[in-house]
């Protein structure tokens, strides 16, 4: 059967992917590790999909709560937290196998989540409820410190390296806000443009990069001066980021133009676009050897694997409806203070 979305991807890629996979299989056959899985959240289907990272076959699905959007590793790396935004709960799962460890109820609309770099705070962004909730974290439990009503639809979070400030994009207000964690109060808000989403901090806490989903660029914010100092044209619907761990570049997904831009975060320029993708590239994850970038295609029910040696899509894997968050344990580190 032909691929239903073949219009969007190069059909010869399948064959090439099979050759590559065969090579990967042979290379990995000596390693008998625990069954590590690629974990994908199917946000419109209340489930997560588990994929074998070597064969790229879907091996299982597990029920979650309603609308799981994002996931986050705990600071001690013992659990991966799946945030069920509509079910108001967190699932703690095994980061390698995806199996359920425990459930935490009563967390209001955890759309986005993150731990401060000093691990003292756990923060959730409640997109539907227009609120950011701050919890004290003691290494195991979260205790609510404060619920902070804030502009319209807070969507993505990031922190300053000292763990003093959490930054949040307000999608429908077109703003970037900063919350002082010690006092749990809003320190400032500033306009950034139409539908800001993902946040990425450059080294030395110098600039915040903001994916502008309603525009075609990444805004460079000097957050100390609260100024947009530059706009890097990337593609329409710039959305989220992933460190490429090469000391120089970060990937940005563009959800309308269906490309991934590679940004030089030192020169603050775009170095290239990865094209030939399926619609709605969203969250990304990078393999430990930095060779493959995995990406969820939000509007195409697929996950893609991009070979970063030649920037081509080498495989697509059918998952559930509206795949959003993606994670696997054997991955390249995320450049701090950006949330893991």
């Amino acid at each position: 059967m032909t691929h239903p979305l073949s219009r969007f991807a190069n059909p010869s890629l399948r064959r090439r992917a099979q050759v590559l996979l065969l090579g990967a299989l042979m290379a990995c056959s000596g390693v008998a590790a625990a069954a590590t899985r690629v974990i994908v959240l199917d946000s419109a289907e209340a489930q997560l999909t588990l994929i074998d990272p070597t064969t790229h076959k879907v091996v299982d699905t597990q029920p979650t709560g309603k609308e799981p959007h994002h996931l986050m590793i705990t600071p001690d790396r013992s659990s991966l937290i799946v945030a069920n935004s509509v079910s108001n709960s967190l699932l703690f799962i095994d980061p390698r196998t995806g199996q359920l460890q425990r459930r935490m109820e009563g967390v209001d609309d955890p759309y986005q989540l993150g731990f401060s770099p000093d691990h003292r705070w756990f923060v959730t962004a409640a997109l539907r409820l227009n609120r950011v909730d701050v919890y004290r974290y003691d290494g195991h439990t979260m205790a609510l410190a404060k619920r902070i009503p804030i502009g319209k639809t807070p969507s993505h979070l990031n922190f300053s390296s000292d763990g003093k400030t959490v930054f949040v994009t307000l999608q429908d207000s077109g703003e970037l806000a900063a919350i002082d964690l010690a006092t749990q109060t809003i320190a400032w808000r500033m306009p950034v443009g139409n539908a800001p989403a993902g946040l990425w901090m450059t080294p030395g806490d110098k600039y915040l990069l903001v994916g502008m989903t309603g525009e075609d660029d990444v805004a460079v914010v000097d957050w100390h001066k609260r100024q947009v100092v530059k706009r890097i044209p990337t593609g329409r619907g710039a959305h989220n980021f992933r460190s490429l761990d090469d000391g120089r570049h970060v990937a940005a997904s563009n959800r309308v133009s269906n490309t991934i831009s590679i940004i030089d975060y030192v020169a603050l320029t775009k170095t290239r676009d990865i094209t030939g993708l399926l619609p709605g590239p969203d969250d990304m994850e990078l393999t430990a050897d930095k060779r493959y970038l995995w990406v969820t295609f939000r509007f195409a029910r697929h996950v893609g694997v991009i070979d970063m040696s030649n920037y081509t899509l080498v495989d697509t894997i059918r998952v559930g409806r509206s795949p959003h968050g993606i994670y696997f344990a054997d991955r390249a580190p995320v450049l701090g203070p950006n949330p893991d």
Binding site: T153, Q171, A195, T213, R236, G237, V256, S322
Partner: peptide, 15 residues
């Protein structure tokens, strides 16, 4: 949606 500046409804509209 993009032209009308309504990208806040991007995800819900698709669903």
């Amino acid at each position: 949606l993009f032209r009308l500046g309504l990208m806040g409804y991007d995800e819900d509209t698709y669903d």
